[in-house]
Computed example of a mutant assay.
Amino acid sequence: MYRPPAFREDRRDVLRAAIRAHPLATLVTATEQDIVANVLPFSLEVTARGDVLKAHLARANEQVGYLRAGASALVLFQGPQAYVSPSWYAGKRVHGKVVPTWNYVVVQARGRTRVIDDPSWLVDQLAALTTAAENGQPEPWTVADAPADFIQAQLKGIVGVEIAIDRLEGKWKVSQNRSREDRVAVADGLSAAGRHDMAGLIPLD
């Protein structure tokens, strides 16, 4: 991933937080014959041996074959993103030499894959995923809320995938390369557009 120095983000805690806040990611695998991509929700486990991504996908999905063969995986997590209008920049009124851009947050994880058929592993992964997603619900749903025989039947149609991360990198393109005056103006513009998530990421100091 192209990462100019101003936009690099390598702090592990920041990258982990972004993954957990935006767990729906694109899993990409490649062989000499094809490139396959699927969108999956991931859970992140931090272990003594390193960070591990866990997910599940349909057993009938063609990507399972690539994963079973130990294909290298690229997982793309997309965080907040927003268009930045050049009309917000103070420079527009001074010299007019400004153009539109796009601010965004992205995390890329790479690693070797392992396919898991163990029902107990799958139940644990489903529980971790839904517990995180259900947090804040008035009546959080759990796997135990569904009939056991129904869950067992559902498990037969999916497989688990585990990716031991060997490379994790982020890119935070949030106007760091602009003057303070421009950064304040962009934050104000995003806030006025209701994009407080992006506005809050712009460094103002």
Rank of each mutant, 00 (worst) to 15 (best):
V186N: 08
N135I: 03
R16W: 14
S43N: 12
V115L: 06
G79H: 00
L190S: 12
P4M: 11
A132C: 03
I35L: 14
L44E: 08
V106M: 12
R8M: 09
V84R: 04
L129K: 07
W88T: 00
A82H: 02
T26A: 11
I151Q: 11
D34E: 15
A187N: 12
A128V: 04
R178D: 06
D145A: 13
N177V: 01
A109S: 11
K173W: 01
A164N: 11
L129D: 06
V36F: 13
S120F: 00
V106R: 07
E62T: 11
A128Y: 05
V52G: 14
A90C: 13
L126G: 05
G50A: 10
A146P: 02
F150N: 00
A58I: 07
A132D: 09
I163V: 15
N135G: 13
F150V: 06
I35Y: 08
Q81Y: 01
S85T: 11
S175F: 03
V99R: 09
E45Q: 15
V161G: 09
Q81V: 02
G157Y: 08
F42W: 14
R167S: 04
V94Y: 08
E62S: 12
Y83G: 02
A199S: 10
L24G: 00
D124P: 01
A18F: 02
T26V: 13
P140V: 05
G79M: 05
G65S: 11
T101V: 01
